[in-house]
Design a protein around this nucleic acid. Structure first.
Lengths: 158, 158
DNA sequence: CCATATAGGACCATTTTAGTCCTCTTTGCA
DNA sequence: TGCAAAGAGGACTAAAATGGTCCTATATGG
């Protein structure tokens, strides 16, 4: 389903929580309570986000997590990549050359372009967008017109 | 990684193969050979594609599979949905109301919009595009400008 | 009636995922 | 100086998803 993992989902929710009150540090247990998820899981998620540089952590008492950049500068891509690794629809989107089907595959290039388009889309969705309760308009119509349809095999009978 | 499952990957490759020679029926074993994948797996994939109405099958000798529509009318969305079910980034993208985190989540709406944008993107990639060896230009730049950035939380210090 | 196909599932092994827990380190403060 | 409150890191487990195979039934053409 091209779905995000639960962890990524959690990450987004947690990041949004923090983004709504970015001045102060948030602890794992505080966030867990707010977001209504078990503390250990939230803790784990925060560690991952912190290791990827999206959060900064302070240890010890009065410790916690803070955004390392402003919500407008953290993208959906960042969050997804932090939890799931590099974004790409197919195995061969990043790993280079280790696909033994390359000769017979014949669609790799195009999938990669599609991946790229999705990545770009996710790059322009920021945490600021996600965190806010309402709008966020994405150009769901635009792409359709601008695809160049080169028609080699295309539309033979329609 | 927002990745397609292997099966979906196979499905795309197989569909592309068929699209390149759409006039005649293709058997599972023939396609397996062409695409360099084990026959049972290809067979399974074809069955799924056929059940979802993307292929039409004829049984018996001289049987096989044919596209049920022209390559230009079969989209990447169709293929993905045939194997993985409805496209959506989060659980709650389709199932309605059964997420007990709804109140604390606060990002569901926006994720759904993003999902929708991706779906639209995949709707405009056709099998004809995938099947052809080269071009396929997607508007990877466009979306950026057209996102309306309503900035509530956004950009406080940059 | 036989050979060739698909249809539909059952089935299994492996991997991935989600989630917990334990131990160690850092830090603030009484 | 010692304790409590935090995060860091990683080991571990249970459950689910995934990929892949195989078997039986059914349809079709010659």
């Amino acid at each position: 389903m091209l779905k995000l993992s639960k962890m990524t989902d959690y990450a987004a929710v947690i990041m949004a929580q923090i983004a709504r009150d970015p001045e102060q540090a948030h602890t794992a247990s505080e966030l867990a309570a707010r977001v209504n998820l078990p503390q250990p899981t939230v803790g784990k998620t925060l560690k991952m986000l912190s290791r990827s540089g999206l959060l900064e952590s302070r240890r010890g008492s009065h410790g916690g997590y803070v955004l390392s950049r402003s919500p407008a500068e953290i993208t959906a891509s960042d969050i997804i990549a932090a939890i799931e690794g590099p974004i790409g629809m197919t195995e061969c989107s990043h790993a280079d050359g280790d696909c033994e089907l390359q000769n017979t595959c014949g669609v790799a290039d195009n999938w990669q372009r599609v991946s790229q388009a999705i990545r770009t889309l996710l790059d322009c969705v920021t945490l600021a967008h996600l965190a806010q309760s309402n709008p966020l308009k994405l150009p769901v119509q635009l792409p359709i017109q601008s695809v160049t349809l080169p028609s080699t095999v295309a539309s033979r009978e329609h």
